[in-house]
Amino acid sequence: MLKVRIIPCLDVKDGRVVKGINFVDLVDAGDPVEQAKHYSENGADEICFLDISASLEKRETMINVVKETAKEVFIPLTVGGGISSIDNIKSLLKAGADKVSINSAAIKNPEIVKQSSDYFGSQCIVVAVDVKKINNNWLVHSHGGTIKTNLEALEWLEKIQDLGAGEILLTSMDRDGTKLGFDLELLNHASKILKIPVIASGGVGKMQHFYDGVKKGKANALLAASVFHFNEFSIKDVKKYLNSKNISVRL
């Protein structure tokens, strides 16, 4: 039976972790490799790096981070943030990333989803979609959620699926940071129309939320950041809890 995946997300700026583990005595808490390794040894099923560097040159440092991570971490690694071209994708995959997550670039030019999945295979193309409810419409936002688009979320999801996305990272901006749980309604609608796996993101505060995300939201994977970084509970705790509720996880 296929297991539900638990994925911690680390924000990396200029090659250093700016939102990551805050509770373990890491030798260098700013080192993305050390943080990724810690999570990988403590039950993470995949690792996600979100590059929030402001400039292009600084993003180059991400390539080295990925190379170093590939030497120490032997679970899948997804890298997102600021990816704008096929060349970007190529250099990240070549450095050792298994998947890349594209967001604003896909909104600007949806063809990049098709081109990249044709070229590299769908399995390594994750499309990240940030959604906020405005006047009862779920609207897609770009540029880290700062720019509203006119794209209706569910239509957009179907479109990028048709273009060849291998997986969707769906973030509810309404729930992100609230600790109120995933937006189950959004998640459930998305899971129903998508034939590709859905990673739920945004809003986890309690263990119950992970369960709801799978059971009610039908998510295939669950992504969280602060609850893990601040050790409110560990990935192992979450997995034991899900397992006790008959959800299949890798223990």
Partner: peptide, 28 residues
């Protein structure tokens, strides 16, 4: 959902010494 993506149980069909695994394991 397709592709089949994630961790799943791999069960050995035999216990021959030529096998690469000796018990059930999760692989990606």
């Amino acid at each position: 959902k397709m592709p089949h993506m994630g961790w799943n149980i791999t069960t050995p069909c035999n216990t021959l010494s030529n096998n690469l695994i000796s018990q059930k394991e999760d692989f990606y």
